[in-house]
């Protein structure tokens, strides 16, 4: 059982929980994730990247967007409540080394998992360029934290409500054209990662993407998280979550991410979800 130490609402439907988890805080490395389950009997197991950790305080931070019943259950927790099951750290840590110049592209909620990676890349002595984007200004998260790490910092919004009115791929392309980029890391919606990979490919810039597939156990048993990488079946939970973005079959990944959409998008259920999110906002 893990106690919720702090809850913060970061944007309209994005929440941040700081959880008591000393064993995970001690072992975790950038790029790894946890699985959260609100209660043992009927709750879903939800994979979430560890956005930050404090080994001394014995705590980890997770950030998530309310997209269904299970994430809503988590959003309704407050400081002092408990999450019955927290398992981790899971997955292979990001390979961190000094390569020179690293471009970190974070989109939407993907900025959360990008944060510890950008931090570690900077600490390893790299020049870190951060591009972050969101559909609109309200959906931007962790701007100050990311700005503090970056040597160069670019914000984009799709609607131009803040920063550049552009997709993240536009500044990424300009940076690649200038040259001198040694590595790119892209984390965000699958479609964004796909187009980041297509942007860097002609420049031969090595690019990693951190994949967020469907997952049940997260320990190398169920096979739900399988993806095709370089023509081979790989499992995100034990082989990933990071893969060479130029090798990932993003189209199939996006297809499989929608496997349970019909069940999740039950109209009735969707409507109640919306109400509950609004209530949470009012409380705030």
């Amino acid at each position: 059982m893990s106690k919720v130490l702090k809850k913060t609402q970061l944007s309209r439907d994005v929440f941040q929980l700081v959880l008591e988890a000393p064993e995970i805080a001690r072992e975790r490395r950038a790029g790894q994730f946890v699985i959260l389950q609100a209660d043992s009997d009927y709750s879903e197991r939800i994979p979430l990247t560890i956005a930050d950790a404090d080994e001394t305080a014995g705590s980890i931070t997770v950030i998530f967007q309310v997209v269904g019943k299970s994430t809503l259950k988590l959003a309704q927790l407050n400081a002092g409540d408990v999450v019955e099951n927290v398992l981790g750290p899971l997955g292979m840590p990001t390979h961190i080394e000094k390569v020179g110049t690293v471009v970190c592209v974070g989109g939407g909620i993907g900025v959360a998992p990008m944060h510890p990676i950008a931090q570690a890349m900077k600490k390893a002595g790299n020049k870190v360029i951060i591009i972050m984007g969101a559909r609109t200004k309200e959906l931007l998260i962790l701007e100050d934290e990311m700005r503090a790490i970056a040597d160069e910092f670019i914000v984009c919004t799709d609607d131009g409500s803040y920063g550049r009115k552009d997709l993240v791929t536009a500044p990424l392309k300009e940076i690649c054209e200038k040259g001198g980029v040694d590595l790119a890391v892209a984390i965000g919606p699958a479609i964004m990662m796909k187009f980041c990979a297509e942007t860097t490919r002609p420049f031969g810039v090595k690019t990693f993407a951190s994949l967020n597939t469907i997952m049940v156990d997260g320990t190398g048993m169920c096979g739900g998280c399988r993806v095709t990488v370089g023509g081979k079946t790989k499992f995100v939970c034990v082989d990933g979550p990071e893969f060479d973005a130029h090798e990932v079959d993003f189209d199939n990944m996006m297809l499989r991410q929608r496997s349970y959409k019909p069940q999740e998008q039950d109209a009735n259920h969707r409507c109640r979800l919306q109400e509950a999110v609004e209530q949470l906002q009012e409380q705030k």
Partner: peptide, 17 residues
């Protein structure tokens, strides 16, 4: 990789666990 294909492990884990 089509939607509707799963392993028995995943199917049974969802159902049982």
């Amino acid at each position: 990789g089509l939607v509707g294909v799963s392993s028995a492990n995943e199917f049974l884990t969802r159902a049982n666990l």
